[in-house]
Design a protein around this nucleic acid. Structure first.
Lengths: 255, 255
DNA sequence: CAAATCTACTTTGTCCGACAAACTGATAAA
DNA sequence: TTTATCAGTTTGTCGGACAAAGTAGATTTG
């Protein structure tokens, strides 16, 4: 039977970590709201009683975690972590774990279909307008593989947004980020790839407008199956997502 | 028409960021493999030609991103980011975005069902043994709400693992982390909550063993519906996931 | 000879002080 | 009213410093 301890566990975390944790607690608990200014570095130095270098190391941790950002004048403020920034970390992890395109495809089939189902139920006029806008743009850039791939990624992101389920939105993001580069490859290598892509988007949008769930699901599936067939003409589904992929993701992130 | 530029864009990223990016590139590209040692701080100082404080800030960024860790002797080495560590960031983001339990429930319904379907197809003997082990433990701690909630979280994590789809595994993790604390509440507030939970696990495991997909899906749904009914006795599904939740997640993370 | 101990060196975590560049806000000039 | 100037902050970076912890090789001990 455990004896009730005389002493509390000594906290041996390094000082910069404690600084980060202290600020994190304030933000996550809601006592500091997104947009609120954290003090200047010098103020934090005074409050925590540690050196500025130490404070700065703590700040880096929080910046990377998306809880802190610097505004236009580089002053610190709390912020709401953006999904796609966090998802980049996850995509990176998936690459390093060498997941296969098969896993990516399988998971996306589930996630995108679920997004579509929710979007069909709940898309607002604005959501539909944004999707229509995207579709129009796709049609204009149908000859440009890179631009079309970007439209495709945006389109599905907009569908997920129209689902009005942020958990779903976040869950699909990492996989979606890894899809993106392949779409460009497929569109430029497979004849009719581009036109089939745009056609699928058109039908999907119509299904959402008509609140026709069955059609929405059907076109989402067909669209993904198209991707799969296109991909298999280029490479095996059991290939792992290559390291080089991340270079694209990085370029996007730093833009 | 854009004129071809005379000068390349000047890279204005701060030095610590460039240090982080340089190391990140080496790891993500695969030139440095997980487990490989990065040099000491002093070596990095020499290689990059910047001050040690600058190097250290860069290191913090990568540590937080899960790409770098310090081994037993605190030397730096590349590493494979662990899903659940990264997922903690995401859970935090979901809390800050004040997602509702309804969103959580809806997304989990999709994700957990998909996990089950894959697990039914692909679970190995080992996966099943781990699940059986977990079930046995659940039965032993059926009176202890906190321990049972932990078992529940583990059980579903094991099912996801048995899906042998790491994208799915990662996608469900953030939502799962937020479920955890509610399970404890429900089990301790709702009569028969605990026994129904264990019963659902038992049937789910049997379904996986028999490779009976329909039964697996059915019991997963039923199990989640149970959660929902239990939760609605305590609070509204449209309540947002509270800030206080993260304190639990933090405790787990620092363990 | 093997095991334990000691010692010199390295590395990390932290601190101090410093300075240029960028930004702020206010004042002076056109 | 707009532009230019200027002093004060704040950030990003630097150099050097030191204690604590870890490492490895030399030394003592059994």
């Amino acid at each position: 039977m455990p004896v009730s301890p005389l002493f509390r566990r000594i906290d041996v975390a390094p000082a910069y970590q404690k600084v980060a944790d202290a600020i994190e607690r304030e933000i996550v608990s809601g006592r500091i709201k997104p947009g609120d200014p954290i003090g200047t570095e010098l103020e934090l130095v005074r409050q925590f009683g540690v050196n500025r270098s130490t404070v700065r190391e703590g700040i880096r941790v929080l910046e990377e975690g998306g809880l802190l950002r610097r505004d236009s004048s580089r002053r610190l403020q709390a912020c709401l972590p953006r999904y796609n920034k966090l998802a980049t970390r996850l995509s990176r992890a998936l690459v390093l774990h060498e997941v296969t395109f098969r896993e990516l495809f399988e998971a996306s089939m589930t996630l995108e279909v679920a997004s579509t189902e929710c979007a069909v139920e709940r898309a607002t006029e604005e959501d539909i307008a944004e999707l229509a806008d995207n579709l129009a743009r796709s049609e204009r850039v149908i000859g440009d593989a890179a631009a079309l791939a970007e439209c495709d990624a945006d389109f599905h992101m907009l569908v997920a947004k129209a689902s009005h389920n942020r958990v779903l939105q976040l869950a699909r993001e990492p996989a979606a980020q890894l899809f993106f580069p392949t779409t460009e490859m497929i569109v430029s290598h497979v004849a009719q790839g581009a036109s089939r892509l745009v056609e699928a988007h058109r039908h999907l949008l119509e299904a959402i407008q008509r609140r026709d769930k069955a059609a929405g699901v059907q076109w989402t599936r067909r669209h993904l199956q198209d991707w799969r067939r296109g991909f298999e003409r280029i490479a095996s589904l059991d290939r792992s997502v290559e390291h080089m992929y991340m270079e694209h993701a990085q370029a996007v992130r730093h833009k």
